[in-house]
Nucleic acid binder design. Structure first.
Lengths: 338, 338
DNA sequence: CAAAACAGAACAATCGTTTGTTCTGTTAGA
DNA sequence: TCTAACAGAACAAACGATTGTTCTGTTTTG
């Protein structure tokens, strides 16, 4: 029943040729080492017959390359990162690479452990959306000479290449959009303060509030979760004077908002407007289609991969810190008020 | 800048001990090979100092084990599989395993290639939700002695262990639920006919139609996609006599239904009822919360992993083909009609 | 015709571990 | 005092590939 996998030695035994010759033929180095056509044919034929597939583990040990990229995200169940993972996996597939995946569960400790695991597996490169405040473990990996690119989340103070959304611009645009629609009492519900994108968004938002001379705004919240959106919205609704618009910093937070608003029988956008970061196919089908600031997920992935491969190939990077502008997708959750 | 990773030889050089001794200490086999306490201390200390992490690739080559599990799904961007992936990744993490992920993109050819890649990497086990009609490539992997478990989708005719939803029961219950709410014209929109779950669901549905003496039903559609749901719903709405209820076989299909219904200004459930397979956090927030047949994703993952580890540990399996009952989550998309 | 040149393939070291076996002292027993 | 027993550690062969080097004939050249 259990047919053992065949290896290069099996081919050697069957053909009577040495393993080195076989290896060379199979790696297309026949010309270079002047191996005869006839020998090549034999090798290919027998390899085929034996259903030979090179043992990558052995190959990797010798070559120091694994044709493997690791992807570390804070939460695979978050559609945003799931999409990233899908993209990356499919993109890497095309180049013969395979993807190791790790969900750090927004836990820096786990992230550290997984990173160690991954490094010990000699991956050729790492794509990571780190979840913590400190990047020392990441920087150590980089100083080990392992190509690494951050995406979405990053460390502004470290010299680690990253690709992310221009969150300042996005948040500014979002804030302006609200203000220009007449909103003067705006509540922002943010995510994790440990996350650079969150901080940048907050700054962008606050900057516009200042520019526009709006003082009646709040920034609350602490996590990129439905629960956080729900809780913070409930708190907002307890206030005597309610905000006219909520600016949510993630799709998950927005869901929480919707839930809370529904419980209070408040309509979007008639009673309160809602603008959120992150796009998702579902947004079109919600009770009220949400106007959202769509991050260029595709481009972020593609560029992150491109940078990573540049590092792997030891090419010079012209830029290694990239910010891409998001796009505001207008739906129906923001009302014009006078 | 680039500090090289240290290996067991470096420790050997620093301590003056042989690599075998160091390996034994580090693997907790000191007692067994009577290595003195003092020597152990030295080894641990130096290993720590050198920031030593064993090279898994070398270890794997020697041991034939990689502490790696591969997960192959038809589409990571489908929330259903993304959730699976998140679950699996986190679950495996706990046992020191790491997850290789592959998105076959509903393409059997890609699935084959990825499978080859994965096998060549000596993974310890494979979890797969196969996307094709034929399981020969899967069976070949199994006959290679590589532990493999199918989940969600499987091959009923092959002796490959699987864990899935009791789709017959789920579809029957769903169908009964509709009939008992007075529906007599029911349109079923199915997904891929290549998928066993789809076929089983269809049979469950048709069985109930027969039992209940309902002849005015249809089964159409061909893909688990939004587009398919959209198209098929549009077609249904062209008919002179429209169905009173639509039974969608996936969350993606349901989204397509909603889109089409919206375009026709039809309300759910007043004008037409909608029942769907798959649950998702978003379903609660849709314009009308969808009543759904929730697959026990968590349990499927846990059991699939359990089976896989049984295979890995060469334990006897009492059962290796498991079907778990889904749960109908009542929301508001199905109307009672008289 | 001897030596050089070359074609064609084998040899052997290596990657970083693990592990069965062997080696070297010291201690205990007779 | 001699040997057996044992503690403590080193040796060396794998695992399956890759690759610089060497080997063996045959052909070409002067």
């Amino acid at each position: 029943m259990s047919v053992k996998k065949s290896n290069i030695k099996d081919i050697s035994k069957v053909t009577g040729l040495s393993v080195s010759t076989i290896s060379r033929v199979l790696n297309g180095k026949a010309k270079q080492y002047r191996i005869s056509e006839k020998t090549q044919e034999i090798v290919f034929k027998v390899a085929e017959e034996l259903d030979y597939v090179p043992n990558q583990v052995a190959r990797n040990l010798k070559l120091g390359k694994t044709k493997t990229i690791a992807l570390i995200v804070p939460s695979l169940s978050n559609p945003f990162f799931a999409n990233m993972a899908a993209q990356v996996s499919i993109e890497l597939q095309k180049t013969g690479y395979i993807t190791l995946i790790s969900d750090s569960n927004e836990n820096e400790e786990i992230e550290r452990e997984e990173l160690t695991q991954i490094v010990s597996r000699n991956v050729d490169g790492i794509l990571i959306s780190p979840c913590g405040n400190y990047g020392d473990h990441i920087d150590r990996v980089r100083s080990l000479g392992i190509p690494l690119v951050c995406f979405d989340r990053y460390y502004a103070n470290l010299e680690i290449p990253y690709v992310s959304t221009d969150n300042f611009w996005g948040a500014s645009e979002g804030a302006r959009y609200l203000v220009e629609h007449g909103h003067k009492r705006i509540a922002c519900i943010q995510g994790s303060k440990q996350s650079v994108p969150n901080e940048v968004r907050r700054k962008g938002f606050e900057e516009v509030m200042k520019q526009k001379g709006i003082s009646d705004f709040t920034v609350t919240g602490s996590e990129f979760t439905v629960q956080n959106g729900y809780t913070e919205t409930l708190l907002l609704l307890q206030k005597l004077v309610k905000p006219t618009a909520i600016f949510s910093f993630s799709n998950t937070i927005a869901l929480g908002c919707i839930k809370a608003l529904k419980e209070f029988d408040l309509r979007i956008p008639e009673d309160i407007s809602l603008l959120t970061f992150d796009n998702h196919p579902y947004l079109d089908y919600l009770s009220v289609p949400l106007t959202s600031i769509a991050q260029p997920v595709n481009d972020i992935c593609k560029i992150a991969i491109k940078l990573l491969f540049s590092l792997i190939n030891k090419e010079e990077l012209s830029t290694n810190q990239v910010l891409l502008r998001p796009k505001i997708i207008l739906r129906k959750s923001v009302n014009s008020i006078s």
